[in-house]
Design a protein around this nucleic acid. Structure first.
Length: 263
DNA sequence: GACATTTGACCTAA
DNA sequence: TTAGGTCAAATGTC
């Protein structure tokens, strides 16, 4: 294990950036280790796999928690960078709400209900969302079903709404995918632009169909979605075709509800 | 025919 | 009043 990660955090300011890089590296290594170990346990020792998932997620959760706090300090001191794949605060992506915690809990409770009545439009709970920027928004180890698309004010690309395909199992996880705007309009081909496109993925809620997550890692059959025409196709993805760090990043964020693990 | 996606309408929070 | 999130009928695909 990287010994740098065990260093005592210095006050925010000089040197913090190096620690942030180390923390990110530690997260990446942990997620790679998890992706390697969990498929080996699944199907052979289901109980052990469950425990391993919790342990991995706990460790990664601690890491993320520390990193986010440190990042908050960096933001306040103006010392920050923007990695290609980064965890971002969803407050910039989800409409701000000044509701109280009680209001937030109420929203969560309403989400948990299968169907309250006609017109059950719910606001997402900001506290339970996680977002990231990635080139491979669909490689997250889950199966999603698209239920909506919306043109967002002032944005080049529409926002796509997905919910877990196993909703009948009361899995209430949802996510939105939105292609980030690009400034290099008019350069090269549109195809090249698509290949380099980055997507903002925001996850809401947590999966209660975790068995499928693990199996998907074991035998990756990612769903390749062409956002431009909405067609869904099974991609026979070789491991070489996958952007592994990005895959792990997405997998991590879609699987874990940090608040729940700490309960 | 079954299942998934599209898309306009509806609802609610800001 | 507006913008964003969800529903559900229509449509497409296999």
């Amino acid at each position: 294990m990287d010994r740098k990660s065990s260093l005592t955090l210095p006050p925010c300011g000089h040197g913090s950036e190096m620690i942030m890089e180390t923390m990110r590296r530690q997260q990446e290594l942990l997620m790679q280790l998890r992706a390697l170990v969990l498929p080996l346990l699944h199907g052979v020792h289901d109980t052990s796999a469950d425990i391993a998932v919790q342990l991995f997620d706990d460790v990664i959760g601690c890491n993320v928690s520390v990193a986010s706090k440190l990042e908050g300090c960096l933001m306040s001191t103006g010392e920050n960078d923007t990695p290609v794949v980064e965890l971002v605060d969803d407050k910039s992506l989800v409409r701000k709400r000044n509701s109280t915690d009680a209001a937030g809990d109420r929203t969560t409770e309403e989400q948990a209900k299968p169907n309250n009545s006609a017109g059950q439009k719910r606001r997402r709970n900001d506290k339970r969302s996680r977002s990231l920027v990635t080139h491979v928004p669909h490689y997250d180890g889950h199966q999603w079903r698209k239920y909506g698309q919306k043109n967002i004010n002032g944005r080049q690309h529409p926002r796509n709404y997905y919910r877990c395909a196993y909703r009948e199992r009361n899995c209430l996880a949802t996510k939105t995918i939105e292609q980030q705007e690009q400034n290099n309009a008019g350069t090269s081909s549109a195809m090249a632009g698509e290949e380099n496109a980055e997507y903002t993925v925001v996850y809401y809620g947590d999966h209660t169909c975790k068995d499928h997550n693990i199996s998907m890692v074991q035998a990756p059959q990612p769903v390749n979605m062409d956002l431009q025409n909405g067609e869904m196709a099974q991609a026979t993805a070789n491991e070489a075709d996958l952007d592994l760090p990005a895959l792990l990043e997405v997998f991590d964020n879609s699987l874990i509800d940090w608040d729940d693990w700490k309960m």
